[in-house]
Amino acid sequence: MKEAVLRVFRGTADGGELVEYRVPVAPGMVVLDALHHIQGYLAPDLAVRWNCKAGKCGSCSAEVNGRPRLTCKTRMDSLPADRPIVVTPMKAFPVLRDLVTDVSWNYEVNRKIPPFSPRAGTDWKMSQADVDRVQEFRKCIECFLCQNVCHVLRDHGKKREFGGPRFFVRVAALEMHPLDGLSRTKLLKEELGLGYCNITKCCTEVCPEDIHITDNAIIPLKERVIDDFYDPLAKLLRKVFGRKRT
């Protein structure tokens, strides 16, 4: 049987090393299968976070050969066979143990976002065309790969000032909900630091759900912030007509 060589980070926040494991390769195998083999036969205490193994829960995020990936969707046969497969934890979050990182910061950011607030007197009718746009954002499985790859977080560590792509997607879903009546532009500008994003599209590239994070969420949100804070005419018109854009 064919064999693959994996070099997996073993360690804690205090440091660690890459440990080499040899794993038999089966057709269609994914990196998470290889990690499970290691747990089952070679290192029962290898820490890996995973749940569905079907690309639906977003738990098994890690970096494979330096690329942020869901390990359950990364086929072994998509990686170069002539060198070891290097698996390391997401870089933007503190390591707890081995491939498991502390992603609790994301849950704190999420709490800042005001929830869906339906406009008074709505009849709950929506057209599929209006819903389509938001359903793209609702596909997000919270794998946090976009957060991991965003240079504002990854390289500059601006976790206090910046919300990150995942939460711009969430705010976009609320702002563009056909029946939502709240504006969150002040939050975007002042608390989530939308201005830090300089649209390099790294987040869009790594999204396993193919959400067009930059084009469909971040840029329209930036336009809304500009309208609300830097375009007095648009602001006045909205005050007069009291109509939320959809």
């Binding site: 709950w124 009718k125 929506m126 819903v131 609320l174």
Partner: peptide
């Protein structure tokens, strides 16, 4: 219906109801 009132977005019928 409650889920919808809490923000869930279901697929729609031509009349705009939940499909």
């Amino acid at each position: 219906r409650e889920l919808e009132q809490w923000g869930a977005l279901f697929d729609r019928t031509a009349d705009g109801d939940i499909l």
